[in-house]
């Protein structure tokens, strides 16, 4: 254990990880189905959680269902361990499950995230849990659930390519910067949750299991380890990720996703890593090197 981990005592007033065992079992069964059909949205009997819908209730239910007493949990929001909602969710599981929590990416066995995939490569003993607001990538093209379920069933994804084409015709580029649709295992088009498209390549052939939970919409889905995940594109407009001219003002990284800070009234910009653990690691390595 290092200074990034914290040991907690479980509040015995609640069942382990808050949800009752029957509910956890129901979610695990749905998860098995999701793993068996990569990218397919499985309806599940989502419960009302003591946090608001839209604040990670789907991810929390999945985490609650898979968490064991020996797990080490990391929670990030925007890539950072210390954003308020990440703190709040981490405290929730520290209190109700008494699990060890950590900020270290390699030490975590379960990582619940909102909007980012860590920069540090994941390994085979890890499970990523994503918080998902709108699980259906077709929703913004076709608002009706009845329609989109049929479209997925029939592999009818023409409209998605039309939308991307219209972007190119209007703007010269595909105008989607996050929640960029992916094709999973050459069958289902999937919303990778609102991660920046910068993170999409990390989903492809990842050794870690990826679970996605949408609490309000009562859907969950999965990408099993070592599954092909390709971002939709065209031969003459290949998928590409964000690039910055600047480097991180703290650790100097040129490979990480950077957040833009505005420092003064004159609008002076500075850029720092969104992944706080990655950034801190690089700084400590640089200090040791000196």
């Amino acid at each position: 254990m290092n200074d990034m981990t914290q040991v907690s005592v479980r509040d015995a007033a609640y069942n382990f990880a808050y949800l009752d065992e029957q509910t956890k079992r129901m979610i695990r069964r749905a998860l098995l189905k999701a793993v068996a059909i990569p990218g397919y949205q499985v309806p599940f009997g989502g419960r009302e959680m003591p946090l608001p819908y839209g604040w990670g209730t789907g991810g929390m239910q999945l985490t609650a269902a898979i968490l064991g007493a020996d797990d080490v949990l990391k929670v990030i929001d925007q890539g950072a361990d210390d954003t308020t909602n990440a703190v709040s969710i981490r405290r929730f599981f520290a209190r109700t499950a008494g699990v060890v929590t950590t900020e270290s990416t390699p030490d975590a066995t379960v990582i619940q995230t909102r909007h980012r995939i860590p920069e540090t490569p994941l390994h085979a003993d890890q499970i990523m849990v994503y918080q998902v607001p709108i699980p259906d990538p077709l929703r913004f093209i076709e608002p009706s659930e009845t329609e989109t379920r049929t479209m997925h069933a029939l592999n009818d994804y023409g409209v998605m390519h039309v939308k991307l084409y219209e972007d190119i015709a209007t703007f010269g580029h595909i105008a989607t910067a996050y929640a960029y649709p992916v094709m999973v295992d050459e069958r289902y088009v999937m919303d990778p949750s609102p991660i920046p498209k910068f993170d999409n390549p990390k989903l492809d052939m990842s050794p870690a299991l990826m679970l996605f939970g949408a609490g309000r919409e009562k859907r969950l889905y999965a990408v099993p380890p070592y599954t092909r995940v390709t971002s939709l594109d065209f031969e003459d407009h290949p998928f590409e990720v964000q690039k910055w001219e600047a480097c991180c003002a703290i650790c100097g990284s040129r490979d990480a996703f950077l957040d833009e800070l505005i420092l003064d009234d004159a609008g002076t910009q500075s850029f720092v890593c969104s992944d706080t653990y990655y950034c801190a690691q690089r700084v400590s390595q640089q200090e040791q090197g000196q």
Partner: peptide, 13 residues
């Protein structure tokens, strides 16, 4: 909730 990662992606775009 903070959305600055996605907003940064939109800014870049």
């Amino acid at each position: 909730l903070p959305h600055y990662v996605d907003f940064q992606a939109e800014l870049e775009l």
